[in-house]
Nucleic acid binder design. Structure first.
Lengths: 120, 120
DNA sequence: AATAGCACTATACTTTTGTATAGCAACCCT
DNA sequence: AGGGTTGCTATACAAAAGTATAGTGCTATT
């Protein structure tokens, strides 16, 4: 393998890393995405249940975020064939996998808080 | 330990988790924070070097973000006592520790991309 | 027939975030 | 003395994200 090939490989790889990080950032950033995802960790929920569980969220935001999360493959919207229609939202596998990212964030956040408080 | 104490402990704990996650999210979200942090992973850099390394960032944004990162204990601003003054930015220990979070994000992002591409 | 719950949508607005462009003070080199 | 580099700041503006409030269509209940 030539030096140039190696270089291209490394460059391509780091480009993929950048894309991957940005994907993740897009999925979790904003005021309401993590609260919604966290609410769905313990099972599927209806629109109203999410609205009640997440303090101060407006239906507009909940609707907007759920659509985006669905589009990004983080949640599934299940329409049950009953009368009246029952609609439930649940995490996809990718959605559940976000737990590893959130865990890393919790870990860093706790450690960092500790470091900042005892900073002298 | 009473049931109420247990409940309070759990509640307190989950509150701390929420704070920790939000701290982390605040530190990494926005258009320029990760590019800046990533640039500093391989050692301290001057303002100009960062400006050159990060494509399309304006000095206003770089200045603003560096101040915020400094305030949050992610970077140190070192003023060298030379003429002319040389100013270098470097990651703090907390800043370096962000690597674990970023790694988790890269992992999730790559896996998720893979999952989305082969979604049928 | 009136009322209430569910799952949203519409419109208007404010706040936050980011961009574009220009300029400034200190120093160095010639 | 004039031009260039470094490390920024100031002002104005545009775009994105979030809030507030009201309303719609369906069904179920009383």
């Amino acid at each position: 393998m030539s030096t140039i090939d190696r270089f291209e490989l490394i460059e391509q790889c780091s480009k993929n890393y950048v894309l991957a990080v940005n994907d993740t950032l897009n999925v979790i950033s904003g005021k309401w995405k993590l609260p919604i995802i966290a609410s769905l960790f313990d099972g599927e929920k209806r629109f109203k249940e999410l609205e009640d569980a997440i303090d101060k969220i407006s239906p507009r935001m909940l609707s907007k975020e759920l659509k985006e999360l669905e589009l990004n493959g983080i949640v599934n919207r299940n329409v049950h064939n009953t009368t009246p229609v029952l609609i439930e939202y649940e995490l996809t596998e990718s959605g559940h996998n976000l737990k590893s990212v959130i865990d890393a964030m919790v870990q860093w956040g706790l450690t960092h808080r500790h470091a900042v408080i005892n900073y002298d």
